Amino acid sequence: MKYFINGRFLTQKTSGVQRFAREIVKALDKRLSSSGLRDEWVLLAPKGAALDLKLSSIVQRHVGHLSGHPWEQTELFASSRNGRLINLCNSGPVLHGKSLTVIHDAMIFRTPENFSPSYRLVHSTLGRVLARRGHIATVSEFSKRELAETIGAKNVSVIPNSCEHMASILPDEAVLQRLGLVAKGYVLFVGSPTPNKNILRAIEAIKLLGEKAPKFVVVGAAASAVFRADDVTPQNDRVVFTGRLSDEEIVTLYANAAALLFPSLYEGFGIPPLEAMFLGCPVLSSPIEPAREVCGDAALYFDPLDPADMARSIENLAATPDLQTEMIARGHARASEFSWDRSADALLKSVSGL
């Protein structure tokens, strides 16, 4: 049996979706190397993509001369049509009848106003067609229900994110001095500042704390071609917008933060809380379903529509050292329930039924 992996993600900047693809391919390669399976696995990428994954069982190969969606719909399809195709980043060739496509959330259908018109048109159409032509997977039970309700996706597989790859990232401590931060003197937000992230209310919560407020460090930049960004101009000197940072800098910020603040109104999974728990950073979160699915009892929850409740949550954690210690321990235990190896096993099970 021949299996092909859509390697278009190797041409894209690494955000949560591309990180999922990279890490699960590496975990899958490890599984294949130890299993002795004789199936043929090939990762196909557009010309010019950096084939930089260190793989031993999965062959990496350039095909075609196009890029982007035209490459997927024509050259990738032609090169993979005699086998099963795995698309890990929300899109793939609609003509391929034996494909598994991971659609990471239903945000394009639930909150279309968050996206640019061109992105909305392409991806909403792709999602609906792929759900009928092939098999759909997603990253959480919540998103599984959402995709069933919005595009009628049936028999959706769940292949969760993980974050243990962060253990191999060496911290870059210089970022603290560069940003004027001291350990445990700030709360952290990681993600693109789009409307569903609820950043404006988080800034208001910091403002309500007055002189007692920690700094609020916002890491990330919205992709203008995809999202409609909020007006998130800092309203006081407690707010620090960093833009995009390296993995080494982000690991440092997690490890030294008083807490991760996760005020989102809608998500498909909740990667920052999982990363924070793994790195020993307490999590303060809105109670949306995917956050509860990821964090369980390892987060302190607040009303995301009430900045005063958010502020109380920050203040309560800061004033209670025993609670901080308890939340860190719970977070470590919760994060250990996720792994790329288990996600790779779920992927193998899903594609075996195509």
Rank of each mutant, 00 (worst) to 15 (best):
Y3T: 10
F4D: 04
F4Q: 03
G7V: 04
Q12D: 11
T14P: 06
G16H: 06
V17A: 05
F20E: 04
V25I: 15
R31Y: 14
R31H: 14
L32A: 09
S35C: 09
R38L: 15
V42P: 01
G48D: 13
L51H: 11
L51C: 10
L53H: 11
L55I: 14
S67E: 13
E72I: 07
L76W: 06
A78E: 15
S80C: 07
R81M: 11
N82I: 03
R84E: 01
V94M: 15
V94E: 15
H96M: 10
Y119I: 10
L121A: 14
L121K: 14
T125K: 12
T125V: 14
A137P: 06
E141V: 00
K154D: 14
V156C: 08
V158F: 06
M166P: 03
M166E: 10
P171I: 12
R178I: 02
A183G: 11
G191Q: 01
K197G: 01
L200R: 05
R201M: 01
L209P: 12
V218Y: 07
V219N: 04
A222S: 15
D230H: 05
D237Q: 12
V240W: 10
F241H: 10
G243K: 08
G243T: 10
S246N: 05
V251E: 04
T252R: 04
L253N: 01
A255T: 11
N256I: 07
A258S: 14
L260T: 02
L260Q: 00
P263Y: 00
P263F: 00
G270Y: 02
F278L: 14
F278A: 09
L279M: 12
P282V: 07
I288S: 04
E293H: 01
C295P: 02
F302G: 00
F302C: 04
D303Q: 07
D306E: 11
A308H: 07
M310Q: 05
A311D: 05
N316E: 13
A335M: 08
S343F: 03
A346W: 06
V351Q: 04
